[in-house]
Amino acid sequence: MKRVARPATRGWAPNQLPAYPSSTKRAPQAAAIALPPQLLPSQGPRWGPEQLRAGAGDLTTQVPGGTAQGQRILVHGRVSDAAGRPEAHALIELWQANAAGRYLHAADQHAAPLDPYFIGAGQVLTDAQGCYEFLSIEPGAYPWGNHPNGWRPKHIHFSLFGAGFAARLVTQLYFPGDPLLPLDPIFMGIPQAAARARLVAKFDLTRTQPAWALAYRFDVVLRGCAATPLDAH
C-alpha cells in the first residue's frame, strides 16, 4: 500500500489566518505544490564566523558606553534535523523589542522608551554539536493594532539556515507562562497545542548564571532531507 507523504509543514499555521488581518491580502490562495527532495538543492548557503559582526552574540553590550536595561537572559539550545542530528554551523539571526516593548525601527511608534544601549539584533552560529547561545534582555510585550487592546506576547524573532535548502526557518521564541500567549493570533495560528509548545522556551536553572542572568533553553528542529518522509517519492 502506498503511503501518502505528509509535508513536514503539516500542523503549522495556515497561510490565511482570519484573526491576523495582515494575512488577508498576502496569503496565497492556491495550495503550494509539493516538490520531492530530489528536485531540491541538497544544500543551502554556507556561513562562517568571519562574516558575523563582533559581539553579535551579546545583545546587552552592543552600544559603547553602557549596557542594555532589563532582565539579563542567556538563551541557549540545540538545533537539529528531524533525525536528531546536529545542524552544525547553522546561522541564527535574532531580533527583538527592548525591555519596554519597543523595537529600534522607524515604523514602531509605541509610546515606550527606546533604550540607547540596546539595538535588539544579533547573530550566532551553532557549533559542531548544533548548540548555540546568546546573551540578551527579556523583551517587553508590545501593543499592536491587529485587534482591540491587542498585545503581542514577549518574543524573540529567530531566523535559521540549516545545511539543507529546505532547512530554512523563520520563527519566534516565546517565554513560559506568558498570559498573552493564549490571546495571540500569531501563536494560536498554529492549530495544535503540542506544536505551539515547541515555540515556548524552557526556564533552565542549570544554565542560570548566579547573580548575573536567567537562562532559557530553546531547541529547534529544522526540516531538510532527514526530516523528509522516506516515502515522499
Binding site: A13, A83, H105, V170, V221
Partner: peptide, 22 residues
Amino acid sequence: MRRPTPAQTAGPYYSLGLDWWQ
C-alpha cells in the same frame, strides 16, 4: 523522528535583524 519547529511570521520589523546581510 522529531517534529519540526513551526514557522511564525517575520513581522513588520524583520529589517532590524536581517538587513545586516545585504
